[in-house]
C-alpha cells in the first residue's frame, strides 16, 4: 500500500509554562499518532480542550512541537527550514470555521484569491484573475463575485470563497476546521455537497475537524475522537458509529434526534 499522505507519530505539543515557578502545563497534544490515506477523509472529533486545535496548529506549524514526527506528502514536515516550508505550504489548503473572520475585510475576493498565488512568486495579473475566476466557479460562485468584498456575501457564499482560496494552489490535503458550524442547516448541506464534489473531482484528501459527530459520520471514511490531548477512539466511521467503544463517544452520538435516512424519507412521503 502507498505511503499515507499525512502520517503523524507520537506527536506531543506542550505550551510554555506561564510563570517562572509554575509547573509545566500538561501537554495539549499527548502522543498522538494518526494516518490519512491519499484520497480519503479523516474526521477529527473533539470538544474544546480536547487538543484538536493544537494538533491542527502543529500540522500547520503554527506552534512548536515538543516531540514526534509529521510526514506530509513525502516531506519530514517538522524538519523543513522556514524558506522551504513557505514553498511546501501549498500542499495544504485550510478552511476555517468563520469565513468572515478568515477572509480579510479590506480586500476584494479577487485579491483574496490571488494572495496564495502571489505568495509563491510572481504571477501575471491576467493569469491570477483567470485562475481565481476558475476556482470560484468550481466552488459554485460566478466570476462577477471577484470584485466584491467578503462582508457583502452571505455566510455560505463567503465560505465558498474560503474554500476556493484554500484550493487555488491545488493542494493535496485540505484541512477543514469546523467549516460548517457557523452556517445554517440548508447552507451546511450545500457546503458538504460541494466538498464531496471537489474531493472527487480533484482527488483531494481531507482532514475534517468538527465537534459534530453527525457531520463527521456523513463525510469521513475514518475518524478519531480526541479528549484531553489524547486519541481515545479511532477506526473506520462505520465501526465507530455502529459500535462506539468509549462511553464518551456514545454520549456525543446519542445526543439529539437520531432517525435513520429511511425514516426521514418515509416521513417525507407522508
Amino acid at each position: 500500500m502507498d505511503e499515507p499522505l499525512l502520517q503523524i507519530r507520537d506527536l506531543v505539543v506542550r505550551y510554555r509554562r506561564t510563570g517562572l515557578f509554575s509547573a509545566p502545563p500538561p501537554p495539549a497534544v499527548n502522543a498522538v499518532s494518526l494516518a490519512l490515506a491519499t484520497g480519503s477523509t479523516l474526521g477529527l472529533v473533539g470538544e474544546s480542550g480536547s487538543g484538536k486545535s493544537s494538533l491542527l496548529r502543529a500540522i500547520l506549524r503554527l506552534v512548536p512541537v515538543e516531540s514526534g514526527t509529521i510526514r506530509l506528502d513525502g516531506d519530514d514536515w517538522l524538519a523543513l527550514p522556514e524558506q522551504r516550508l513557505r514553498e511546501r505550504r501549498r500542499a495544504i489548503g485550510v478552511v476555517a470555521q468563520n469565513p468572515f473572520l478568515s477572509l480579510s475585510p479590506r480586500l476584494t475576493i479577487a485579491e483574496i484569491l490571488a494572495e496564495p498565488m502571489t505568495a509563491q512568486g510572481r504571477v501575471p495579473a491576467e493569469e491570477l484573475r483567470l485562475r481565481a475566476a476558475e476556482m470560484l466557479e468550481r466552488c459554485g460562485l460566478p466570476g462577477t463575485f471577484l470584485s466584491r468584498r467578503a462582508r457583502e456575501l452571505s455566510g455560505g457564499q463567503a465560505q465558498r470563497v474560503a474554500i476556493a482560496r484554500a484550493l487555488v494552489l491545488q493542494p493535496k490535503l485540505l484541512i477543514l476546521d469546523e467549516p460548517t458550524s457557523a452556517l445554517d442547516i440548508s447552507v451546511q448541506a450545500q457546503i458538504l455537497n460541494l466538498l464531496e464534489d471537489l474531493k472527487r473531482e480533484l482527488g483531494l484528501s481531507m482532514l475534517f475537524v468538527t465537534h459534530n459527530l453527525k457531520v463527521v459520520r456523513h463525510v469521513s471514511d475514518t475518524h478519531v475522537v480526541m479528549r484531553g490531548g489524547r486519541i481515545i477512539e479511532a477506526g473506520s466511521t462505520e465501526q465507530i458509529s455502529s459500535a462506539p467503544a468509549e462511553e464518551y463517544t456514545r454520549q456525543l452520538m446519542g445526543y439529539g434526534r437520531n432517525p435513520t435516512g429511511a425514516e426521514v424519507a418515509s416521513a417525507r412521503r407522508g
Partner: peptide, 17 residues
C-alpha cells in the same frame, strides 16, 4: 430542513439542499 441534515441520508449520498 430535516432532509438537509447530514444524518438524513445514507453515507455517500448527496444531502438535499
Amino acid at each position: 430542513l430535516l432532509a438537509a441534515l447530514p444524518d438524513a441520508v445514507a453515507k455517500g449520498e448527496r444531502l438535499a439542499s
